[in-house]
Nucleic acid binder design. Structure first.
Lengths: 343, 343
DNA sequence: ACGTCCTCGTGTAACGGTACATCGACACCA
DNA sequence: TGGTGTCGATGTACCGTTACACGAGGACGT
């Protein structure tokens, strides 16, 4: 593994000159430059980023802490972050916590040790551990942006969706179908996200003079929970005609239960999800979903990270809230309506 | 940002002693150890991995190069890698190429510069660029394991599924349904993966005295391609009764087209996918799929990486091939059969 | 002819952590 | 009492890169 010194020896120049060539500095004559480039090729030189980072005090790496790699939501988010940093020549690198609080803290510590340029964090547990980990990163001069799950009391910029507005939008959308019998299926009541979505949904219905005729808090928020919830919902009497699920996996599970029971969607049951994961549009009956422009979220996070990196001193943490949008697809299409363009 | 020297000054010991405490070396007395630990806490010391790596010549980071972060297949793979390295105290970090050959090479170079402990690579383009990039990593003493897409001529260990066997399994499975009219829908003909799957499928049918009644090579291998293919397949006359898709996204798209057209799956059309992505089981009609135990693939890759890391000298590259398995679900259920347990 | 400026190249030191050799002090045994 | 061994702590040097200051040599103006 060649170093600048070896390259320099081969090219008969000083190591400093090799460094100057590598970094495209102008004060190198054409002849010498040629010789150095030749030597670089011959030795197969690969820059040692560790030494570089040690010298410079920072790397050209941005870390993303994702909760779950198999969930396309995080993939989309990472894509947005990469978009937002495309012109920066940084490597965006993702670590996954698998929704384990300890692994979250561990990964953050490791990223801090690596002296990454910044960290974009999604977490499953927003407890004191995370709070102090984030404070630690900030103290070390590593900018942090918290994404996806709005949260107070963190010394960091945040980007989040507006769950309350999303719940209201969901209510408006389902009311717009003009069918009676509105229901919801929520993820674990312990999760603030799900609670915020359902309570605003319920309130908006109430304000419009309607009410929830059936509801269920699931023990989890995965596909299997959705299937189970769907079976119970379909057995209810009277059976609801439209249902709001607080995330897309629940909704997809519900769709599966409906197909299994031969219940037509949206004819007999309209289904609305949340998060607009890439597979929502790809479901057998393309799933309507309240979406948060996940990619835009990643881009915004990248933007805030850059702002904080550049500002260094006197930086006020920003708290961005992205407005949710309803992506109306087949699963909530009113009867007798032709397919729209939205996919 | 405190360094060992500052911590040492505060604890009134030498930097070396701090290092010894940090690394849990026994040659430190209890009193001094206590003082150092106190000082570590007071200064909020965070290890500088760059300096450490520079000294040691390697990091405690393993890189994974994924083609597409939104595809759960890669999430699953990364999960397997993490499983396989769980007891190693390394940080597993993922970079994404978005199926862009240049970004693949770029990311590999950056990982090499970071002096990661090893790299697990999936790529979209297995050209000369990648070949020399992999050779470069190997030359730099960084073990590489190529995953998912079997390929010759690389100086690295590989782990892959057996596409030919998978195609044969698909043929057997569909033949087992006892319906006439077998078809296939493939991804781009330019992709070796898809070609291998279809040609072995076709051969196996032929060997059993059957033939493909309809087939289509799509321009891409995403959901939209599947929907388009589905529309054309459903319009064919006579319409095939069972179809093998060379990946799950195509199959899911086909499912969507069938639902749209009111065609019953599996009653009127049986659909078999490939890859067994997590959403296959979650589709409205749970999708049968030829799977490769993706997580096991990741674990195997991790194992090979460790083996190569430890062997250093005289290491023979291993080429692991994992046998595919058919996950039979509702989308290929024979008429009049009750639901099986497989999800 | 001499000062000034510019171009191109080089030597030195430092970033933070740790391998290695060393060294003082004390215990223990013959 | 002197020799040997062990334990605990330290000093030094080095990993690879680059910021900075410096210096040699040539061009140019007066």
């Amino acid at each position: 593994m060649a170093s600048v010194r070896e390259v320099a020896a081969l090219a008969q120049v000083s190591p400093m000159t090799v460094s100057n060539v590598l970094n495209g500095r102008p004060s190198v004559g054409p002849e010498i430059r040629r010789r150095v480039e030749q030597a670089l090729r011959e030795t197969g030189y690969v820059r040692n980023e560790a030494a570089r980072a040690l010298r410079a005090g920072r790397t050209m790496v941005v870390g993303v802490l994702a909760v779950e790699a198999v969930n396309p939501f995080y993939g989309e988010l990472v894509g947005g972050v990469e978009d937002g940093l495309a012109d920066e020549d940084v490597l965006v690198v993702t670590a996954t916590s698998h929704a384990d609080a300890d692994r979250e803290l561990m990964a953050l510590r490791r990223l801090a040790e690596l002296r990454v340029r910044g960290v974009i964090v999604t977490a499953s547990a927003y407890g004191d551990g995370l709070r102090s980990a984030v404070a630690g990163l900030a103290a070390a001069g590593i900018p942090v942006v918290l994404v996806a799950h709005p949260q107070d009391g963190f010394a960091a910029c945040t980007v989040s969706g507006d769950d309350a507005a999303g719940g209201r939008l969901a209510a408006e959308h389902l009311l717009g179908l003009g069918v009676p019998g509105l229901a919801y299926v929520a993820g674990p009541a312990a999760s603030e996200v799900h609670r915020r979505r359902t309570s605003s949904f319920r309130e908006a219905l109430g304000a419009a003079g309607h009410e929830v005729v059936w509801s269920l808090d699931c023990p989890g928020d995965g596909l299997a929970d959705g299937v189970a919830a769907g079976r119970r919902l379909l057995a209810a009497d009277p059976r609801p005609r439209a249902v709001f699920c607080t995330n897309d996996l629940l909704a997809l599970g519900l769709l599966q239960a409906a197909t299994e029971a031969g219940v037509a969607v949206p004819g007999e049951l309209a289904v609305l999800g949340y998060d607009d994961i890439p597979f929502a549009a790809g479901a057998a009956v393309p799933l309507s979903s309240v979406g948060q422009d996940t990619r835009g979220m990643g881009r915004a996070a990248a933007r805030l990270l850059r702002a904080e990196t550049e500002a260094r001193a006197d930086h006020d943490h920003e708290h961005l809230v992205l407005p949710p949008v309803v992506h109306a697809r087949a699963s909530t299409r009113p009867f007798g309506t032709s397919p729209p363009g939205d996919t």
